[in-house]
């Protein structure tokens, strides 16, 4: 197995996104590419990443392998790469991860025993969809955060708004379809869902810089799925369970 990236931004974004949920990560490499799927320890959020072989400058994988890393240790190495530096990873016979950063930095990092079990994906229909720039979404999360720990998303036909409510007050941000940062608002049924900013904010910050447009899909009182479109990466799906009246 060997994979070489083109620049370091995509791998940084992936590792940064994963680091918002877990401390240890198991990646699966197959002939098709590298994937990761995992949940945070309290099972509120799930990340599903698929990184196709076509996104790499060089990629080879003769037989399927799993390898586990401590995300903070891996992250430290990856951060030593400049934007343009490629990062090449392979696995040594001594079961170490070989990480070549740029042309001349050759790291060896210990792998951890991977305890990963197959995680399924939430099976839910999505009634509503909002596509907007990640920078706009990041700004909206910041706007809501000043009064609330939770983001409520509401759609009705082709209208939508984000809102939040807390001890100090509340906010409603109407989405303007003429805004060039907003690509689409659509709903098969009026939908309203509330989601924790504690989970949303870090992942949007982590991937936001590399993602252009993001797609939020949800249904009333059902999980939110955010798709980050990163130029070179197949997909990053982030699932977040809702908060519901109890």
């Amino acid at each position: 197995f060997g994979a070489k990236t083109n620049g370091s931004d995509d791998l940084k974004a992936i590792i940064s996104a994963i680091s918002t949920l877990v401390e240890e990560a198991t990646f699966v490499a197959t002939a098709e590419g590298i994937s990761f799927r995992g949940m945070d320890p309290s099972h509120v959020a799930l990340i599903d990443i698929s990184w196709p072989n076509s996104a790499f400058e060089k990629y080879e994988c003769d037989s399927d392998i799993k390898f586990g890393v401590r995300i903070d240790e891996f992250s430290k190495l990856i951060k030593r790469a400049d934007k343009k530096d490629s990062i090449e990873i392979s696995i040594s016979e001594q079961n170490m991860l070989l990480v070549t950063v740029g042309k001349n930095k050759k790291y060896k990092m210990r792998l951890i025993e991977s305890s990963a079990t197959d995680t399924p994906l939430p099976k839910i229909p999505y009634d509503s969809k909002i596509m907007l720039s990640s920078s706009k979404f990041d700004k909206i999360l910041g706007d809501v955060q000043v009064v609330s720990d939770y983001l409520t998303i509401h759609t009705s036909d082709s209208k939508g708004d984000f809102s939040g409510k807390g001890d100090s007050g509340e906010v409603v941000i109407d989405l303007d379809k003429d805004d060039e940062d907003i690509e689409e608002i659509s709903s098969k049924e009026d939908s309203v869902g509330t989601y924790s900013l504690e989970y949303l904010n870090p992942v949007v910050k982590a991937v936001g810089n590399t993602a252009g447009v993001i797609t939020c899909e949800f249904s009333s009182a059902k999980p939110l799925r955010i798709e980050f479109k990163v130029a070179n990466i197949g997909r990053i799906h982030f699932y977040l369970a809702p908060r519901v009246e109890s």
């Binding site: 099972h43 509120v44 399924p120 939430p122």
Partner: peptide
């Protein structure tokens, strides 16, 4: 009041 749901309950 509101409660946080678990993502695994949608598997």
């Amino acid at each position: 009041s509101q409660g946080q749901r678990d993502i695994t309950s949608y598997f």
